[in-house]
Structures are given as structure tokens and as C-alpha cells.
Amino acid sequence: MKTTKRLDLAIQKLYTAFHNNTLNPECCKQCAVGNILDHTDAWKHLSDNHGSTTLNYIGMVNQKFGKTFNGYSPLELLHIEAQFLKACGYQLPLHHNNKKPKNPTDKEVLFLGLSAVVQFLCKLDNMPDVMDCNQLFQFQPQIKTSKALMLS
């Protein structure tokens, strides 16, 4: 399947971060967006709170001027990070009183976050979800009624 360059690069960086243990939801340089942006934290100045999807003044100016960061607009970056944090089990925006996972760097927690991010990245580029193994096996799950489930 042919994908966009920004999607390929983002998935490569997230894959590498996951396997090199350089993925941390609570660090602006090691979160999903921090990794996509080559371990920089400049993106955190686009909103006032980590996990927020609301652009601040700096974010709005960059958005209106069409600025992109490794191919992603400021608003796209905020939504990517929000998807990651929510799927990892955080209540947004990040705050010490809000709900968060017991072990944020647990591989299972991070995998849930990455799966949500990859699905979202694919949606941004109008691509099928590359994490959807139904397509890999050419399988379409059938909805069974509760009566049919009881008989099997």
C-alpha cells in the first residue's frame, strides 16, 4: 500500500521510539508528537496545556500562516498528542490531579496509545488503517446476534 511521506516517517519514528524505550507520554520530547518531531519540544508552545487541542496565540499564528512541522499543522499535532494521551489512559489536559495510568511507560499502555495515533495519522492522510489486521487477512467480522452466540 502506498502511503504519504509524512505518514511513513511518523510511523517509523514511533516504531523506533517504542522499541528503543524512548516513548514517554509525560515528556514533551519523548511523547508521540515529540518523537514525530525528532525529540524536540518546540510544539509545546502551540497550546497552553499538554494534551489540549486548543491553539494558543502562537499556535494560531503558525496555523494561519500555514506552518507545518515535519508535514503536520499545529492543530494536527495537538490532536495527534491528544489521541495518544487519551488512549494511554490520561484525562486531558495533563494535570497532576487528573486521571493517569499507574505506569505510563508500560508497553501495553504505550501500544494502546500508538495504535490510536497510527489510526489517527492514517485518517488524516485518507489512508486505510495500517494497524487493521482485518485487511491483512482480508477478513470482515460478522455481527452475530446474541441468540446465535448462545447456540455456538
Score class of each variant (00 low, 15 high):
5 K>G: 04
5 K>W: 05
6 R>V: 02
6 R>N: 11
8 D>E: 15
9 L>C: 08
11 I>R: 13
12 Q>N: 15
13 K>V: 04
13 K>H: 13
13 K>C: 06
14 L>S: 10
15 Y>I: 03
16 T>H: 12
16 T>G: 04
17 A>C: 10
18 F>H: 10
18 F>G: 06
20 N>R: 11
21 N>I: 00
21 N>D: 14
24 N>P: 09
25 P>H: 06
26 E>M: 10
26 E>A: 04
27 C>A: 09
28 C>T: 15
28 C>F: 05
28 C>G: 14
30 Q>I: 01
31 C>R: 03
31 C>N: 15
33 V>E: 09
34 G>L: 00
35 N>F: 12
35 N>C: 15
36 I>P: 14
36 I>H: 09
37 L>Y: 04
37 L>N: 11
39 H>D: 06
40 T>N: 05
43 W>G: 13
43 W>Q: 14
43 W>P: 13
46 L>N: 08
47 S>W: 03
49 N>I: 00
51 G>P: 07
51 G>Y: 02
55 L>Q: 04
56 N>F: 00
57 Y>F: 08
58 I>N: 13
59 G>A: 02
59 G>W: 01
63 Q>Y: 07
64 K>D: 09
64 K>I: 00
64 K>Q: 13
66 G>R: 04
68 T>L: 02
69 F>Q: 07
70 N>W: 03
71 G>M: 01
73 S>T: 15
74 P>N: 01
75 L>D: 14
79 H>G: 05
80 I>K: 14
80 I>V: 15
80 I>H: 11
85 L>R: 07
86 K>P: 09
86 K>V: 03
87 A>S: 09
87 A>R: 06
89 G>P: 07
90 Y>V: 01
91 Q>F: 01
92 L>E: 13
92 L>I: 13
94 L>V: 09
96 H>S: 09
96 H>M: 05
97 N>P: 01
101 P>K: 03
102 K>M: 08
102 K>F: 11
105 T>C: 13
106 D>P: 04
106 D>Y: 05
109 V>T: 15
110 L>R: 08
111 F>K: 10
111 F>W: 11
112 L>H: 12
112 L>A: 12
112 L>P: 02
114 L>K: 05
116 A>E: 14
117 V>H: 06
118 V>R: 06
118 V>G: 02
119 Q>T: 08
122 C>P: 14
123 K>W: 02
126 N>L: 03
127 M>V: 07
130 V>Y: 12
130 V>R: 09
132 D>K: 04
134 N>H: 15
138 Q>W: 01
141 P>Q: 01
141 P>L: 01
142 Q>L: 12
142 Q>A: 15
143 I>L: 05
143 I>E: 12
144 K>S: 09
144 K>A: 09
146 S>R: 12
147 K>L: 08
148 A>Q: 14
150 M>W: 04
151 L>W: 01
151 L>F: 00
